[in-house]
Design a protein around this nucleic acid. Sequence first.
DNA 1: TGTACATCAGTGAACGCGCGTTCACTGATGTAC
DNA 2: TGTACATCAGTGAACGCGCGTTCACTGATGTAC
Lengths: 231, 231
Amino acid sequence: MYPNGCKVTSVSTNLDADIPVGRRPRNRRGEGSRLRQDILDAAGEILEETGSPDAVTLRAIARRVGIAAPSIYAHFPDPEAVLVQLLIDGFVRLTATVEEAMDPLSDPVERLLAGCRAYLRQAASRPQLYRILFDHADDTPEAGTAGALSLAQGLRAFEVLVGAISDCARAGRSVSTDPFADATAVWVVLHGLAILPVSNPGFPWPPLDQLLTTTVTRIARIDASTSVNQE
Amino acid sequence: MYPNGCKVTSVSTNLDADIPVGRRPRNRRGEGSRLRQDILDAAGEILEETGSPDAVTLRAIARRVGIAAPSIYAHFPDPEAVLVQLLIDGFVRLTATVEEAMDPLSDPVERLLAGCRAYLRQAASRPQLYRILFDHADDTPEAGTAGALSLAQGLRAFEVLVGAISDCARAGRSVSTDPFADATAVWVVLHGLAILPVSNPGFPWPPLDQLLTTTVTRIARIDASTSVNQE
DNA sequence: TGTACATCAGTGAACGCGCGTTCACTGATGTAC
DNA sequence: TGTACATCAGTGAACGCGCGTTCACTGATGTAC
């Protein structure tokens, strides 16, 4: 929140309800864009704490960052734009994490499973953001900007998944005859595993990593004898 | 909206912005509880149209039903209670639909698949309600009341699913050794299939019913030769 | 090296809006006599 | 059969709140001379 590490020495008189604790030290000249990242961080925190995009208001962000609400207009045209940027960043991070996890591996089965695990790890790191990434219908206000990009990003990541299953089949490790349909099923499982344990913590979940491995292995029709992490 | 079928003859002067179109004819004595259902119906419509529980406000409901906002207090203590009732009803309907679809069938594989199809059909009939049923984290305000009930209802429906897979195994139609874990995986798939096609209509989905059948068959380890709807 | 000044980064007061909630009320419906 | 009256089903005005957005402003930072 205070990236330059300054302590706020003078205690705020706190007359304005919008600025409850201390005040953020102003940025040096040319460092105004730091506030932009602080705004995004604060918005992300609010989103994870409340789980509701509607709670990400200009004034809530301003309170958290320690600035006056109108200061946000210097960096974003309106609160919707903050949310859109949050979604875009989330999508980019998700696909980047999956690709980085798969890239260094050569064994096709391990590549597939590593990508799936990375997907769930990234989703779990910001569960509410992940949920909103996929749950909003496409006709939602933010779909115009973020929706188009998310589809493009998602399709790119999806091709990696299809490729991984194709590689398994080519290597004789899978008997899949329709890698695209099987990749779709894998994605469906990933989404369910990313959402349900978060929203239903009271359910007696079996070990999730084993559930993932077993299920993906069966869906992608990977020969049990050739895989390491078998049930 | 006008359950007794009366037409509103006098056009409202529309001075109050909360009552834009006509006015609802008042109920006869003893029929006050009709308004309760009208309120729930209106709230459900708002939820499906906006996709946001925050949009289900007292005043939005009142506008849609054609009453003054305070009239709702005669039937619900606050807007949260309307939403909670909506979620409870949704959960009851979901589990009832699944059980009704499975009940008349004797073949264990067909029972399992029919239950899964009924689950998706019911979810698709009110996609936003379904989403909110499962997506809200348990620490959300409405979790106190609806969360507990939803867990109980959900576990009951889940036992039906576990039983169906066990039946398949007992009948020699499945080689599943862990029906509980397999039922969990099937639920994960059902949730993904209920959510993703709605939120990502732009994705090139393969035929969903075939995707469901294939995936559930593989997860529950049902022998391909004994099942009818095989790929 | 000192000083006037432009600019950058952000402030504070104000507005109108929709919201939840309260309160006293109204007028049609049914009932007791 | 007629009439006074209790009750039911809902109204309308008002309040305080948090919100998005606007506007004129301020004061520290750096720069030109």
